[in-house]
Simulated assay, not measured.
Amino acid sequence: MSEQPNVIQASITTFRVAEALKHLEGAGVTELAAHLELPKSTVHYHLRTLMQAEFIVADGDEYRVGLRFLDFGEFVRDRVELLDATDPALRKLAEETEEIANLLVEEHGRGVYVARELGERAVQTSFHTGKRVPLHQTSAGKALLAFTPRERVEEILDRHGLPSKTQNTITDRDELFEELEEIHERGYAYDDEEWHRGLRCVAAPIRDLNDRAVGAVSVAAPLSRTRGDRYRSDLPDAVLSTANVIELNMQYS
């Protein structure tokens, strides 16, 4: 990320330390310093700051993210208006497909999962509420981008690039825009092991009255259960139907 004017770099570092603690699921000063490539004295300074503000807790020589972040997360979740229109449609999608159903929105050029429901046969993945992902790596992210103005998509790519997650991830800008055109025409997007090996996803955008995506709903399932008609017609029909219900709920709620 490029440095911006009028930004307090010490504050940015503090947030980097907090994010690293989440990523590492707790760590000591030495491990954090190595992970962030910062001096141990600097890391210790920012840990003390986070401790004083009660955002992290100490467990012996290790530090971990504290419950105060939960308060912030629940506050933000309550203010996401789209969630009111999504429940119980997302739950019904998970029940009918028996897989993982997700709701994703865009913030700061990244995808953020804001809701998740598990069907009977849902597999364990690293998807969780609040998880941030590059938009081009997932079906939900691509569904969002396909119904986002071209200039905004260009801004997102300029800022975040096209990092690879698997060997199937699209890393070429022209190829991505070609796929976004196809998604726009058919109305839904695929993720064919582009975010995680052995996992396929299908997603549909949730659009406002101006035909711009305000979110996307997706179903994720293992490769073994996403073959033939289920992948090419059944799951697309399911996410399109769910997106349509959510759009109507948004208009008349």
Rank of each mutant, 00 (worst) to 15 (best):
E54H: 14
A58C: 04
G60E: 13
D61G: 00
E62F: 07
G66S: 03
L70T: 11
L70P: 00
L70R: 15
E74I: 01
D78V: 03
L82P: 02
L83N: 05
P88Q: 07
A89F: 08
E95F: 05
E96I: 09
T97N: 09
T97A: 09
E99F: 03
A101E: 05
N102D: 10
L103R: 07
G111P: 05
G111H: 05
V112F: 12
Y113W: 14
V114W: 03
L118Q: 10
G119M: 13
V123K: 13
V123A: 10
T125H: 01
F127P: 00
H128P: 00
H128I: 06
G130N: 14
G130A: 14
K131G: 00
P134F: 11
P134C: 03
L135P: 08
T138A: 09
S139L: 04
K142F: 09
A143V: 06
L144N: 01
L144Q: 11
T148M: 14
P149G: 10
R150D: 10
R152L: 14
R152P: 02
I156V: 15
R159T: 08
H160Q: 08
L162G: 10
L162V: 11
P163V: 12
P163L: 10
T166P: 04
T166S: 07
T166H: 08
N168Y: 12
I170P: 05
L180T: 07
